[in-house]
Amino acid sequence: MSMSDQLDPAALKKRLKALEAQAKEAQGTIAELKSRDALKTQFLSNISHDLRTPLAAIITHAEILRDGMLGELNTKQRDSVRGIMNGGQQLLDMIDEILTYVRGASDQVKLARTEFSITEVVDQVRLLNQPLAAKKHLTIERLNGDDVPPIYADRDKLKHVLGNLIGNAIKFTPDGGRIWISLSRRGKNGNELLVEVGDTGRGIARDNHELVFREFAQVDASPSRSHHGTGLGLAIARKLVELHGGSIWVESELGKGSRFFFTVPLNGPRE
C-alpha cells in the first residue's frame, strides 16, 4: 500500500468496509462451527445411550449363562461366555467414557465435594488395576503420601482422573516396566496437592505434550495403531482437574517414560 492510499479517506473507508465484512464473515463461521460442535456432542450422547442398551442386554444374557441359570456349562463354554462378557465390558467402559466426555463438554458435570483420604483412593485405583498390570508384569507403587492430610474435593471425579492416568500408564508401558504414584503438597502454605503418575513406558515427544490432552487426539491415530481407545481419557482428566481449579500437564521424552502431574486445592470451596 502506498503512502497516498493510506491518506486517501475514500480508500481508507473502502478498506474499513472490507475489514468489517471479513469480521462479520468470520463471526458467521465461528457461530456455524459452534452449532456443528453442539450437534456433534448431541449425536455422541444419543448414540452412546443407544449403544448401551443392547450391550447391557448382551451382558445380562452372558451373565445368566455364566451363572448356570439355564444349565451347567462345561469349561470351554464358560471360557467362551467369559469372552463375551469381557468384550462387552470393555465396550461398555468405552461408551461410558464417551458419555462422561459429552456431559463435561455440555457443562453437565457438577462437583460433589466431600472430605476423604487421597492416599486411600490412590491405593484403591492401584488395586483395581493390579490384575491388568500383572498381565504385563508391571509394578504399580505409591511412593509416599501417608502424611498428606484429608482433601476436600469430589472423590469419584479424582478417582476417575487417577484411573485414566494409571490406565494409560499400563497401556503404554512395555512388559516388566514400572509405574509409580507420588503425592506431595505445594503452593502457598502447602494448600495444593500435587499428584504424579509416572511410568517407564514409550514416552511422548515434546510436540505432542499438548495434543494428548485434546479430545479424540491420539499420537498414533492410524487404523493400524497398536493401542485403541476413545482418545478421550486425558481430555476428561483435564476437564475434571480444571473443574476443581487445578491444572494437569505431562513431562516426557520419547523413549524415556512419562510423568503426568496434576494439582488440586486440598481445601476446595465449601457450599
Binding site: 442398551t53 442386554a57 445380562t60 444374557h61 445368566i64 441359570m69 439355564l70
Partner: peptide
C-alpha cells in the same frame, strides 16, 4: 432386548 433378558432371569429365579 432388555426385557427379554430380564424375563429369562426372573423366570429362572
Amino acid at each position: 432386548l432388555v426385557t427379554d433378558a430380564f424375563r429369562i432371569l426372573f423366570t429362572e429365579s
